[in-house]
């Protein structure tokens, strides 16, 4: 009996320890830190740590940008922030309503959580279903995670925390309501999922690729020094913008030309990915998803009423 207990203990211990995000903040500018996730898909191995979140240590306290995919992740963030500074977290800003960015908010229940008002609406409408899907994809990492809605509505403009003026910009290209945050003191641009780098972009709530491209061009024109994409490595040059615009242009052209040629969805899904995108992860997977999200609009544009 004792031997059995011992075996059970030994077997169960590593699995408990495995559900640790081991978040390590990386300083990318004065006072500014990023938790860089992988460019993989959601899995039971990574617990959904596929996303970039961050924080700014200001004189007025810590400003947190996005809370990650789960309660466990949010708690791990707070713990890691506590190793960097004694200052309290005074504000959470959510870039958009997608689950990998907004489901850690329960860990910040004592802090005002702010987002665009449309983000709050979308999270209210779809949050439970999005959370349910993450439970399915990553499993026990999600334990205890529930949607916590933002309690402050953000307007575009400047908000000041200590010596950091944060320029808040409202867009829609990725999710219908996307907040980008430019720290005017350090030049760090937290672009949310308007920007993906080395990871294929996702389109489940995009109003359209043309809208997204235009907004990316506006974002690129801001005076940024450091780029923090929603997914992928931090950059100090324009490569993420160049790659995103190239990829968006390719995807838009592919869908348009495929519709004009009369392809059905499975034929579009099978299209070869151009070799220049070989370094981008999950291109085929996201093409399958984007065809489902976006192709019907392109199809309808090339068909005409034929009923009599």
């Amino acid at each position: 009996m004792r031997a059995l207990l011992l075996v059970m203990l030994v077997v169960s211990l590593p699995s408990q320890a495995d559900l640790e995000y081991r978040l390590a903040p990386r300083q990318v500018a004065p006072d500014t830190y990023v938790f860089e996730g992988s460019t993989e898909n959601f899995s039971r191995a990574n617990g959904g740590n596929i996303v970039n979140t961050g924080f700014i240590v200001t004189e007025a306290g810590v400003v947190v940008i996005d809370t990650g995919p789960s309660l466990r992740y949010g708690r791990a963030m707070r713990q890691a922030i506590g190793l960097v500074t004694d200052k309290p977290v005074v504000q959470v800003l959510l870039t958009h309503h997608h689950p990998d960015h907004a489901l850690g908010s329960q860990a910040f229940a004592d802090v005002p959580i702010a987002a665009l008002s449309a983000t709050r609406e979308l999270l209210g409408e779809e949050g439970d279903a999005l959370a349910e899907n993450l439970y399915r994809l990553v499993g026990d990492w999600m334990r205890g995670t529930q949607v916590r809605l933002p309690d402050q509505a953000l307007e575009p403009g400047v908000r000041v925390f200590g010596s950091h003026s944060l320029r808040l910009m409202a867009f829609s290209g990725h999710s219908g309501a996307d907040l980008a945050i430019l720290d005017e003191r350090t030049g760090v641009l937290f672009a949310g999922d308007l920007l993906f780098y080395q990871r294929a972009l996702t389109t489940p709530h995009s109003p359209g690729l043309a809208v997204w491209r235009k907004q990316l061009e506006q974002l690129q024109a801001t005076p940024w020094q450091v780029l923090v994409a929603g997914h992928g490595p931090v950059a100090r040059d324009a490569k993420p913008f160049v790659q995103m615009l190239d990829y968006l242009g390719w995807l838009d052209g592919l869908l348009r030309e495929s519709a004009q040629a009369g392809l059905e969805m499975n034929e579009v899904i099978a299209t070869p990915i151009p070799p220049r995108f070989a370094a981008i992860s999950l291109t085929r997977y996201e093409l399958i998803r984007s065809v489902s999200h976006l192709y019907p609009q392109y199809e309808q544009a090339v068909m005409a009423r034929v009923d009599r």
Partner: peptide, 12 residues
């Protein structure tokens, strides 16, 4: 068909 249904209401 795709390997997974992105939208189970509209699977090509």
């Amino acid at each position: 068909a795709p390997p997974f249904a992105e939208d189970a209401r509209q699977v090509p």
